[in-house]
Design a protein around this nucleic acid. Sequence first.
DNA 1: CCTGTAATGTTCTACTTCATAACAATCTGG
DNA 2: CCAGATTGTTATGAAGTAGAACATTACAGG
Lengths: 175, 175
Amino acid sequence: MPRAAGRLPQFKGTWLMTDTGTARETKKARKRFRTDSVTGIVGYRLRRAQLAVFQRFQLRFAEFDLRPADYSVLALIADNPGCKQIEIANALRIKRANFVALINRLEARGLTERREAVGDRRSQALYLTPVGSETMQALKATQDAFEAECIEKLGGVEARDVFLDLLDRLADETP
Amino acid sequence: MPRAAGRLPQFKGTWLMTDTGTARETKKARKRFRTDSVTGIVGYRLRRAQLAVFQRFQLRFAEFDLRPADYSVLALIADNPGCKQIEIANALRIKRANFVALINRLEARGLTERREAVGDRRSQALYLTPVGSETMQALKATQDAFEAECIEKLGGVEARDVFLDLLDRLADETP
DNA sequence: CCTGTAATGTTCTACTTCATAACAATCTGG
DNA sequence: CCAGATTGTTATGAAGTAGAACATTACAGG
């Protein structure tokens, strides 16, 4: 029922009153559920958008059964073959402890492998397997298409640039 | 060690080369860790910004020991006294099953209370307690200050409006 | 009226993410 | 050599999230 402005004269005010205590709910309390005090908050909208984008990402990558973090790890290994676990973990702000299970999964699926690092017997050198490299091509194509989707939603690359700039303004780590 | 620009001439190039294949790692492989393929993604930056904002929120609200979801629930109850649990859960996209523990905590802290709803004996009517109302004033002040912070980071209310619009473009639920 | 269906709140369970602590092996600088 | 830092790993706990199942209650159609 969209506000029914026509019936306004039928009732005796209390619509625009600031805090009528005498209103006394007439029959069916016409309480519109107010959410503006929450939905108007930057952080709330930011979270909503982030969830929506990640959900769409998972839809696009469902055929690969990979999460955003998995894709990021594979992409970073592809761009930095032989890198250490800690390097990727730091770049993605993942605790190195939690990175272990992640890379274990990728390795178990035959996408990555750990070799012995040359100058440091503590660290492992990460590489994509041949299968991993081949998979990465399809992943990159999917990601590029998804990014194009996002850019289109935003209204073009200029809007995207504005958007990234605004995001970075909020993302600075100063408490 | 801040980049040591003074020692630059000491080495033989490969710094600004685009993709020298012949460089052959001289002694210490000076591999810059490449992250652009991930950090350039809209979703990645969106997540970064969201995490940063939520972390700052938690800092600002640490004295109250309340999370964003707690604040949202209290704000919605304040704006919609007598509302049902399911209404708030739907508004915040929380499963009603998970809402129970949340509202139980707030009730245990004496901030909210459940009364019997008038026309429906299944649902509960949620209200702020007097203590809850008083607390809410401080919370609102803190939130308003935090929102002002965010707006300032973004560059003003006009930038904020642009930002919210861009967020909403990404947040639409069409798969 | 009765009855099947839907809604509401609740409990329980499981999965994922994230953070911390602890440990062994290794590296580094003095 | 040695103290301290780094790397990978395991284990553990907190928190968010999703689903199933249940009891109680509303509601609409016969």
